[in-house]
Amino acid sequence: MELDARRLRVLHTVAVRGGVTAAADTLCVSPSAVSQQLSLLEREAGCDLVERVGRGVALTPAGRALASAAEEVLHALDRAEAALAAARKGIGGTVRVSAFPSAARALVAPAVARTLRRHPDLDVRVGEGEDGQGLADLRLAAVDVVIAQEYDHVPVDFPTGLVRHALIRDPLHLCVPASGPLAGASSLEDLRDARWMAAAPGTPCGDSTRQACHDAGFSPDVRHSVMDFALALDLVAEGLGVALIPGLGLRDLPEGVVTAPTAHARTIYALTREPGVGPVRPAVAAFLGELLGRQPSAARGSAGRARAENEA
């Protein structure tokens, strides 16, 4: 039995993404192409790897076992590519980065610019994405670095096989209208009867707001579902509600908004695949060096503490 590594990647992608259509989107091919590759892999394996469930497919026990083994094979290939890259002269190639918007603006964009000035043969590509999508892409080797967040009061169970590099600690701030009955509010308890705006449940920022209010003894009356921090601040400025926003989201604070610090914060990480016994690709290491080396001045001290905690 000889298994094709490219087809193993297809099976692994189906396992991580949870279906043929989602896997096809990740691999930039048609669903029929994914199904064809799975059929060929089943012939090579000599057993059924997927079974139809409703309108979709699920992995059989043999499929799940092979997908788990495929991840180890793909990591080995990743390490082999890193070893070859380390043996070449100079630093080149492509580094693919996924980041959520506020970190992309404040942390990633300046780091990319510094990296390209220092290593002009590098090609660093940035894609905007939420944490869950980015982490799945990282496991699939569709990206090389993911910028993700973890709120102190909403712990995250990060997937195994990934390395976290702590970047900064980003405190959360109450944002209230500068005039009106809520203008003097300085604590969550002062805002239990206020109208709130927050991202949807299941998102890091949305869960953070709801958990912080729950810890303060109330459930927030979320009137506006807002992902974009700039939009949330504009709504606050118009007196339409209050919000809990991280410091990186306050770069363009509009008139009419007053902020107050809270005891809550998030840690922002750069995540990479675990290198195992092989070296990290020089291109990825070069970008990480710039990303870890310089942070916004307001967060620089806390960034050092976060890195120390990560390395301890």
Score class of each variant (00 low, 15 high):
L172R: 10
W196L: 12
G127T: 13
A178I: 10
T209D: 07
V95D: 04
A306G: 04
Y151Q: 04
G132D: 14
P275G: 09
E51D: 05
V143Y: 02
V146Q: 10
E2F: 11
V257R: 13
L77K: 00
L116Y: 11
R79K: 00
A15H: 13
S68Y: 00
L27R: 01
G161A: 07
S219C: 09
A260S: 15
T259D: 09
G134D: 12
R281P: 14
I268F: 01
A285G: 14
D137V: 00
E274N: 09
S186R: 15
A58V: 02
R281N: 10
G63R: 06
R192G: 14
A286G: 11
A285W: 05
V226G: 03
H165Y: 09
A76C: 00
V280S: 08
P282R: 08
V146E: 12
A194H: 09
P275N: 13
D252K: 14
E130Q: 11
R266M: 05
G304Q: 09
G293Y: 01
G206T: 02
A148H: 06
H119Q: 14
A299W: 12
S98H: 12
L291A: 09
M197K: 13
T267P: 03
P282E: 09
M227I: 12
V34I: 06
P296D: 00
T203I: 01
D78W: 07
R105F: 08
A23Q: 06
R114C: 13
L235Q: 15
V176G: 10
R139C: 07
A103L: 03
A303T: 00
L240K: 15
T94N: 02
R117T: 15
A185N: 12
L77M: 04
V34Y: 01
F229I: 01
R43A: 12
V284P: 09
V284G: 06
H224E: 15
G180H: 07
P201M: 02
T21G: 06
Y269S: 03
V242W: 05
R64V: 01
V277M: 07
R139V: 09
V146M: 12
A232H: 04
H264I: 06
E71K: 05
L233Y: 11
T267E: 04
R114W: 14
A265T: 08
A99V: 02
D228N: 12
V154H: 07
E311R: 15
E150D: 01
E238L: 15
R43I: 09
A237C: 10
P279C: 12
E2D: 10
A285C: 07
R195I: 12
D193N: 08
A200M: 05
L84W: 10
R273I: 06
A58G: 01
V257Q: 13
V258W: 07
P201F: 04
D170Y: 03
A178N: 13
V257P: 08
A5Y: 00
R88M: 03
A65C: 00
C47V: 03
A183L: 08
D170N: 13
I147M: 07
P177R: 11
D121V: 08
D144W: 08
E72V: 11
G132M: 05
S32P: 00
P155G: 08
E72Y: 00
L11G: 05
D137F: 12
T262F: 07
G92H: 11
D207N: 11
L172K: 06
R52I: 02
R52L: 05
